[in-house]
Amino acid sequence: MPSLSHVIEVFFDTYDIFLKGMLLTLQVTAVSIFIAIFIGLLFAFLKISGIKILEWIANAYIYLVRGTPLIVQIFIFYFGMTNLNMSAFWAVALGLAFHNGAYIAEIFRGTIQSIDKGQMEAGRSLGMSRNLTMRRVILPQAFRRALPPLGNQFIIGLKDSSLAAFIGMYELFNVATTKGANDFDNMTYLLIVAVYYLFLVYLISALVGLLEKKLSVSD
């Protein structure tokens, strides 16, 4: 084990390169989550559409994503779809979005269906269309209920972005393993990168917590 003072020393010596890696980790995570939320909403709607073929498509998508490892999905985007000539960044961003979209779809489907059906009836009885009631009445409540599990999914997405190291993207984890190998000091860099991940996870939890608090004024 490296001594604590050694780890701290290396931490301050290497923060510039780690910060660059962290920025890349954050970017790829943010882009993937942004896309995943839209994918999730789309497939949640397909699943509750009541139209057999659309439900089947949504179920097939979720089955595929849940049934295969994320690293396989990322490799398919990067090495498999060579004709798309995707950069490592976009292969990871889309791979993660495709992956998390399925889980987020299940989160949204669950919370939309958990809203009392009297809410839809109240909207309809006032002359509001199904879509308008969905948008103005159901979704805001469903989104609020979805926040805690969504926060979890964001954290999973952040940590999963470390798989980008395997297609050569120089994000946090790749910085740590590369430096560790060069300096024959793996443990020090792994401990340091763990601290960066802990900080980022803390940041996401805090942001989601803040949003939850803001949306709970009606309680």
């Binding site: 009392d116 809410q119 109240a122 308008l132 409540q141 009606s218």
Partner: peptide
């Protein structure tokens, strides 16, 4: 045709006045 329900079915994420103006503003 207005309707009043046994379980009220107010919109819990909107305050009283927002509940009342929702349909006039967004439907009418």
């Amino acid at each position: 045709i207005g309707m009043v329900f046994q379980h009220f079915n107010l919109f819990p994420h909107k305050n009283v006045i927002e509940n009342i103006i929702e349909a006039p503003v967004h439907v009418k």
